[in-house]
Simulated scan of single mutants.
Amino acid sequence: MDDGTFDKAKGDVKKAAGELTDDQDLKNEGRVDKAEGGIKGKIDEAADKLKHALHRDK
């Protein structure tokens, strides 16, 4: 599991726990973790595409 996927899963768990306990701070933390995971995933995808492009040009 890459960092982005882990953060998304962690965010889902925190958000669900916040909803169950009616804890707005925990729900917000979950949303932030989930967003961070999405951003990390996009950065990883871009880095992979760049690596492939650079290796193709050699």
Rank of each mutant, 00 (worst) to 15 (best):
M1W: 08
M1F: 14
M1P: 08
D2C: 03
D2Q: 02
D2I: 03
D3L: 15
D3M: 10
G4I: 03
T5V: 12
D7I: 00
D7W: 04
K8T: 05
A9P: 00
A9K: 09
K10V: 11
D12Y: 07
D12M: 11
V13A: 07
V13H: 01
V13M: 09
K14Q: 14
K14W: 11
K15F: 14
K15M: 11
A16I: 03
A17F: 10
A17M: 13
G18I: 07
G18P: 00
G18K: 00
E19S: 08
L20E: 12
L20D: 08
L20H: 04
T21W: 03
T21I: 05
T21Q: 05
T21F: 07
D23S: 03
D23V: 03
Q24D: 10
Q24S: 08
D25E: 13
L26I: 08
L26M: 15
K27W: 01
K27H: 05
G30V: 05
G30S: 01
R31I: 15
R31Y: 12
V32H: 00
V32E: 14
K34N: 15
K34I: 08
K34W: 13
K34V: 04
K34T: 07
A35N: 05
A35R: 01
E36N: 14
G37S: 01
G37W: 00
G37D: 01
G38W: 04
G38M: 07
I39D: 09
I39M: 11
I39R: 06
K40V: 03
K40D: 05
G41F: 04
K42I: 09
K42H: 10
I43A: 05
D44C: 00
E45G: 02
A46M: 13
A46L: 15
A46G: 06
A47S: 08
D48N: 06
K49N: 12
K49D: 15
K49H: 10
K51C: 07
A53C: 02
L54W: 08
L54G: 04
H55M: 12
H55S: 15
R56C: 06
D57P: 03
D57F: 11
K58V: 10
K58P: 06
